[in-house]
Nucleic acid binder design. Structure first.
Lengths: 192, 192, 192, 192
DNA sequence: TATGAATGAGCGTTCATTCAT
DNA sequence: TATGAATGAACGCTCATTCAT
């Protein structure tokens, strides 16, 4: 079926882009290489994406959606907020250490001028689910009344740093290290 | 004096590179533009740097050294560790929000495959002063016995996230927000 | 037909390179000029050749093959060796005086460090047919038992010098001059 | 003494140019490298030579003069022409196999478009001594009445080919090979 | 005379993008 | 829709040459 084939090609292009960009960076990932890796012709990419920038931005959005969904899917509203946030933190660490390509791509992208090409409201939409999750925690008085944006920044900044540390190969983090790191964060944001 | 002139040219090239790369990214900062911005001929850059990569790596090392030095210069060994770490955290925030070009450059660089071009031991040397500072804090039992690498990751991850938030323009952080964020961190790492 | 078009483009690039290099030398024949002369875009050359060096080496191999084939094609195994070698000598002179571009290109190439880029066994393969022709003459006791490599050197050195003399415009060689030069060579190598 | 110093510098520049050009070719021998190798500043070369082309042409003329002089110096007018020409041939072979840099430089130069930069009469002047030597041999009826230009071409073409063969490393020529080659030539040009 | 930092035109090459098939 | 040869602007970089010292 054509639709399935389209899907496959688009997927293949995304996968190839992720592979190459995460390893070599944006400008060392020519479209011709992406095409080769995806087993399509160079021109074919332009049936699915307007330009290289468009492809990269689309991949960013896609990965953001996917990771956010994955990370919140396992949330269990019946548990205590501490447990839910702990689980979110740990999942985050696990997900990215197990999917380093996605981590590298997202970090690279969000620290590059590329990100300015994404409309602000789209960026907001991508963060919305996590944002909602934490705002509710504040509302439920599970955590201190810190603006959710700050809280996200702190949590994700912390976990992101740890992922980077782990992936650098300089340092093997044990699960106790992660727990410890989480509780350090938690002690910082929990309602005393 | 020749030495002064050399210094000026090299400085001008560094400044131009910082300006352009922080604004447009590595690959949207051609050497010809760097030269124009620095008021030198394109070829002149190659008297000071072997290649574009070399220039960018040299600038990274230089900025790292400068910021580390600046951030630790104001450390007062007579104060309590809480105060010293607080000051470090706050200075960090202040320095980077006031020097956004340096922040963007460093973030972009350290999240790009470029960083692999810097020998591991050089990277270690750049982080050594901060590392020493925190290791001593652990040794003095001022903070919990968390591996310093993790502690650095958490502190800098946290403050980096806040700087990004502030610079994004989405959110105006008050100094009370920063204090709050610091104390959250501190509560996490202090010896209870 | 695509294959024909490819052939045409590659041929046009070869012809343009021969034209320019024979007239101006390697380094005064920029790729941009080659492209212009061949009526293709600069980038197109790189579909057919990896680099400028690759193009030039490929052209050398091609011309060597073509001239060797041309020179041996007219050989008539029924004739006496004296006649066959005479014919080879005369053809050689005629071919290169009538195709000065090829002569200048080949001379330039084989006297430049470029030639070291061609694997030794490839060079040997190119000379093999002439080598075989002369070795057989030795074997048949038509000529003295001089190592064929030396004999080739002498014959081709002699005729090459004459071609250079003729093309220099300093001196108009008559066909009697060439005959005379050949017989001088022949008297030197024939079995007495 | 200044004059001596000048001489030394100019010599050093010539020596450096010969060294580099014979090994790497004209366009892989930048003036900056020549300067380094000669232990002078880049600008200094321009006190002695108008341009790179000028330097290379001057070196050509110089080497031509020197080799011609060397080769004719040992001529002994008392001997038979056969002996004198034999000696010239053998010296030629010996000189260039022992001075491969000069051989490679001269071959490269005389097969490149560079040579067109040298006025025709200068070229003639350089060849004049050898030309005279052989013309006299014709006049004395020692050799056949072949135009001296052709005779030079044949002799030098022959010996040049052998030098190339020897220097290529493919083939070790014995002194008997050279003798044989000379007598082949001689049989070709001697008055029967 | 000697220096070598500075110049900038010009090079070889890449690669995002197009378009005839 | 899919192809991939072709394009050519733009890049990083070299190097012959100049000139203030």
């Amino acid at each position: 079926m054509a639709t399935q084939k389209d899907f496959d090609k688009k997927e293949a292009i995304f996968a190839a882009t992720l592979e190459l960009v995460s390893k070599h960076g944006f400008h060392s990932s020519p479209m011709s290489e992406v095409a080769k890796q995806a087993n399509v012709a160079a021109g074919t990419i332009y049936h699915y994406f307007k330009s290289k920038d468009d492809l990269i931005c689309a991949l960013y959005v896609r990965l953001k959606e996917k990771t956010t969904e994955t990370l919140l899917k396992q949330d269990d509203a019946n548990k205590h907020y501490r447990e839910r946030i702990r689980s979110f933190y740990l999942q985050n660490f696990r997900y990215f250490t197990q999917n380093p390509k996605e981590f590298y791509f997202l970090e690279q992208f969000s620290n590059s001028p590329f990100i300015q090409a994404i409309p602000r409201q789209d960026l907001q939409r991508l963060d919305q689910p996590i944002y909602d999750f934490l705002r509710k925690a504040v509302f439920m008085q599970a955590v201190r009344d810190i603006p959710p944006k700050i809280m996200i920044s702190m949590l994700l900044g912390s976990v992101g740093s740890l992922v980077k540390l782990q992936l650098s190969g300089d340092f093997q983090l044990t699960s106790s290290d992660i727990e410890q790191a989480f509780f350090a964060c938690w002690d910082g944001i929990k309602r005393q």
